[in-house]
């Protein structure tokens, strides 16, 4: 009913004291109380993760912060970090998504072994990974030697080397996330695509990939975050040359040896940038249905 239909009723409603207007009953929570046995460890876990960050904030030299931010080398290292982590993520997506697809969709002998091998970079100390990369891609390595002789390309101790080191440690995160998404996706959509005349490549491009896009995005974010924080493999395989291979974590490590305060500042910058980017991406990609 619109206002014009019967204005008098509205008036009388206002004027008459009448019965008290129905008060909305207090919202009652249907959800049950969380058990203390879960709440206490949860709170401890949160404190454990957040306290070190708070420590950084407390000890930060706030008064000299502006000068330190523009100190030579800081922005260079930050730019290099963001650039290499982004390129490493692109490399991981381009190689890792097909790898995850093969693991999830192709039935072959030794699939379990391949899956175990993929997780090796997760458990391997990054420094060991860096040594292994040197043995393969170094100037005298199996692949590196050939690249050097045939094309004159050197990977070790270059910016490309940083990307390789970061991609090596970060790729498992992407492969595992995407494979999980692929296994969770309903394969019958792919069957439906096949009955409509779509070959496997068309099905992958037009059906599978859009269906698992949130999983790929989540995997890429994890992968980028891991690449941004990469230290051990990078310093072993790519070295610590300012402007070329010195990323933020390496700069922090170097600063730590001479000046704790600048190490804190560098850490805070890395922290602020990565948290901002991750939070933005999370809202844009992951939470959208």
């Amino acid at each position: 009913m619109s206002k014009h239909d019967n204005p008098s009723t509205h008036h009388s409603d206002v004027l008459k004291p009448g019965p008290p207007a129905p008060v909305a009953p207090p919202r009652r929570r249907v959800g049950r109380r969380a058990p203390v046995a879960l709440l206490i460890p949860a709170a401890l876990g949160l404190a454990f993760l957040v306290l070190p960050l708070a420590g950084l904030l407390v000890r930060a030299p706030w008064s000299t912060l502006p000068q330190r931010l523009v100190a030579p080398g800081v922005l260079t290292a930050l730019r290099l970090s963001l650039l290499t982590a982004t390129i490493a993520t692109v490399v991981c997506v381009v190689l890792g998504v097909p790898l995850a697809w093969v693991l999830a969709r192709v039935d072959f002998r030794g699939r379990r072994i391949v899956r175990a091998l993929i997780t090796v970079p997760l458990v391997l100390p990054p420094v060991v990974g860096g040594v292994a990369l040197l043995l393969v891609f170094g100037r005298k390595g199996i692949v590196g030697g050939w690249l050097n002789e045939t094309f004159g390309i050197t990977l070790a101790f270059t910016t490309a080397g940083v990307v390789i080191a970061e991609a090596f440690v970060a790729m498992p995160f992407l492969v595992i996330a995407v494979e999980g998404a692929l296994r969770g996706a309903d394969e019958r959509y792919e069957e439906a695509a096949a009955t409509l005349g779509a070959g496997r490549w068309t099905t992958f491009r037009r059906v599978t990939l859009p269906l698992v896009a949130p999983g790929v995005a989540a995997g890429a974010v994890l992968c980028w975050a891991r690449a941004l924080g990469e230290f051990g493999a990078t310093i072993t395989f790519a070295g610590n040359f300012p402007g070329r291979t010195q990323t933020m974590p390496l700069a922090v490590y170097l600063a730590l040896e001479k000046d704790l305060e600048s190490a804190i500042v560098l850490s805070l910058i890395l922290l602020a940038v990565s948290v901002t980017i991750l939070a933005t991406l999370r809202d844009r990609w992951i939470n959208t249905p």
Partner: peptide, 8 residues
């Protein structure tokens, strides 16, 4: 399936 003249 993708080469069969079927609709499902």
């Amino acid at each position: 399936p993708d080469q069969r003249p079927i609709g499902v």
